[in-house]
Simulated scan of single mutants.
Amino acid sequence: MEHTHRPFVRSRNDRMLAGVLGGIARRFGWNSTLLRVVFVVVSIASAAFPGILVYLIMWLLMPEEGEVA
Results as ranks from 00 to 15, higher is better:
63 P>D: 02
43 S>D: 06
3 H>K: 14
3 H>M: 10
5 H>Q: 10
55 Y>P: 03
31 N>D: 15
18 A>P: 00
51 G>H: 02
27 R>K: 15
69 A>Q: 11
54 V>D: 01
48 A>G: 03
69 A>H: 07
41 V>Q: 08
42 V>I: 13
46 S>P: 00
7 P>R: 10
25 A>W: 08
60 L>S: 11
4 T>G: 09
66 G>F: 06
34 L>V: 07
17 L>D: 11
32 S>F: 04
64 E>I: 02
47 A>G: 15
52 I>K: 08
33 T>I: 08
2 E>T: 09
14 D>H: 13
24 I>F: 11
35 L>A: 05
51 G>V: 02
34 L>A: 11
55 Y>E: 06
66 G>I: 09
27 R>Y: 13
12 R>L: 14
5 H>P: 01
6 R>H: 13
64 E>H: 06
39 F>T: 02
12 R>F: 00
56 L>N: 14
42 V>F: 07
63 P>A: 05
50 P>S: 08
30 W>C: 08
40 V>E: 08
40 V>A: 12
45 A>N: 04
14 D>K: 14
18 A>W: 00
62 M>C: 02
60 L>R: 11
27 R>F: 11
19 G>I: 01
63 P>V: 01
38 V>I: 15
53 L>W: 13
15 R>Q: 12
17 L>E: 13
54 V>H: 02
69 A>I: 03
41 V>S: 07
14 D>N: 15
21 L>T: 00
8 F>V: 06
15 R>D: 01
53 L>A: 14
51 G>L: 03
34 L>P: 00
50 P>G: 06
56 L>V: 08
2 E>F: 07
37 V>N: 10
28 F>S: 09
26 R>Q: 15
61 L>V: 14
28 F>H: 15
59 W>S: 05
61 L>S: 11
10 R>E: 04
44 I>M: 08
58 M>W: 06
7 P>Y: 12
17 L>P: 00
54 V>N: 00
39 F>A: 06
35 L>G: 03
23 G>A: 07
14 D>G: 05
13 N>H: 14
57 I>P: 04
4 T>V: 15
14 D>T: 12
58 M>K: 02
26 R>D: 14
11 S>Q: 02
57 I>T: 12
24 I>Q: 02
40 V>K: 03
42 V>S: 05
20 V>C: 04
57 I>R: 14
28 F>P: 03
38 V>G: 02
48 A>R: 13
13 N>K: 15
31 N>I: 04
54 V>I: 15
39 F>C: 03
42 V>E: 08
5 H>R: 08
16 M>Q: 11
28 F>K: 12
21 L>R: 00
2 E>M: 07
3 H>S: 09
8 F>A: 13
7 P>E: 12
63 P>M: 03
6 R>T: 13
21 L>K: 00
42 V>L: 14
43 S>T: 09
42 V>T: 08
20 V>N: 03
36 R>A: 09
36 R>G: 05
